[in-house]
Design a protein around this nucleic acid. Structure first.
Lengths: 248, 248
DNA sequence: CCTTTCAATATGTATATACATAATCGCCAT
DNA sequence: ATGGCGATTATGTATATACATATTGAAAGG
């Protein structure tokens, strides 16, 4: 989405100087005019070029440095960085949103719900220390008549006690949690697997068919909150991630 | 990786004030102490709290706003934002790096190389307008004795003319391109597929076995540069993406 | 009572200035 | 030559200040 913004032409009076310096320089870098390793003008030179104070130039360059486009070295100057590792932003939307974006009616179904002391397996998935209580959920998400995704979820009841009183018949656990728990970190693991019998039945596909699995572990202020595994039939889903060098 | 940094304790004298304000406030937000919608103190109040100038506070708050943790409203103040959509950073490393991270010896093999006028299919993959020349490559990446990934790549020779003279016997096209072409944008598409005969043979797995496919399209200053499809056998690979609210 | 107007307020952007810090260059003595 | 040392230089961080701008709340006028 921001791919568009990145090439916005300065129609240009109302833009701040800060922004102008930023986009000027990043354009010269991204167009290749200033190749990796090239030393960009010193702050005092840019000060002259843009007729502004060093503070303004400094702010812009610091931002480019934070964005990873340039590297700054004291006494030596600022240099265009060589791209390091491809980093992309993966937006993981609520499944309802994804389904509705396809123009299909969304339906949610709770298949099972168990409250129990955490087993060794639960603790491994949640990265939990104690054997406190967890809530295990199994759900299906439909796009039109077809099952779209299968959800297996564990909720750490020590972190989210209210979940024990929720049946999750009407609302899916994802949006329920988002509305209640401020998350501070999450880890996603994405892989391909063959459908086992259980998954195949739930998604109405052949056993052994390829599936995309997205597992997410979520923490809130150092406490594990939830572990969820979404399984999508191969045809139904692709994840899209975009990289755009950040412009501030 | 930055999950760790996010909770770095201020051992604290050498940290800049700027950094201290930033981490202080984001910790209060992420711990839930300041819930979404909460109005955080005005700049002049923080100025008093941290005994520093408004500029310093302003810089920190502007950064938090850019990171999406807070929303600033003139005359009203700054407010903690409600988490919008899950966004995670997916780092896509060079395959050599990934293999070596597993402690296995890396080997690269060029299977095929064709220079041709772009076909309709090539143009669709590259999002190319003209029917200019392209270079089509097929490669294999090994981890130890086992094939780890299969690579199918198209390079737009109009954008990277020098590629026409490179055989890609010794060096893989990925690192070759990274070292030469500054990319400005990339789009990744991740899905699960069943191995066809060709892929199965290349990866030494059964036809029909699930595979993880990562496709990447890369642009440099508005020109399509390359399209690449990596196929991994299901057992060999998982992608990991991490979300950490950005701290600057 | 409703609308218009105006002043107060919080943020947005920019300046000039100051001193700290890290890295490099060149001089000097060995 | 060479090794150390101080001066120079570019960036890093912070301050005080000024004015612009958007938005709110209250006063003034119809």
């Amino acid at each position: 989405m921001s791919t568009i913004e990145a090439v916005d032409v300065d129609v240009g009076e109302s833009v701040s100087l800060h922004q102008r310096i930023l986009s000027d320089i990043s354009e010269r870098i991204l167009s290749g005019a200033w190749a990796p390793g090239h030393r960009i003008p010193f702050e005092h030179e840019l000060t002259a070029e843009y007729k502004c104070s060093r503070m303004t130039v400094n702010k812009a360059l610091s931002q480019l440095a934070k964005a990873g486009l340039i590297e700054r070295r004291r006494r030596s100057g600022s240099f265009v960085r060589r791209p390091q590792s491809q980093a992309a932003v993966l937006e993981i939307h609520d499944i309802r949103i994804e389904v509705e974006a396809l123009g299909l009616p969304y339906r949610y179904e709770r298949v099972a719900r168990h409250k129990r002391r955490s087993s060794a397996e639960d603790r491994a998935l949640l990265e939990l220390d104690s054997n406190g209580p967890v809530l295990a959920l199994e759900c299906r998400h439909f796009a039109g008549k077809r099952p779209f995704a299968h959800e297996q979820r564990l909720i750490n009841l020590a972190a989210v006690a209210e979940a024990a009183d929720e049946e999750f018949h009407a609302i899916a656990p994802g949006p329920w949690l988002i509305a209640r728990v401020p998350w501070s970190a999450a880890e996603h693991r994405i892989r391909a697997v063959a459908a086992d019998r259980h998954i195949a039945a739930a998604l109405d596909i052949e056993p052994g068919a390829p599936c995309l699995v997205v597992e997410r572990r979520t923490w809130s202020a150092e406490h594990p909150v939830t572990h969820v595994r979404f399984t999508y039939a191969a045809e139904s889903h692709a994840l899209v991630a975009r990289f755009t060098p950040s412009q501030g």
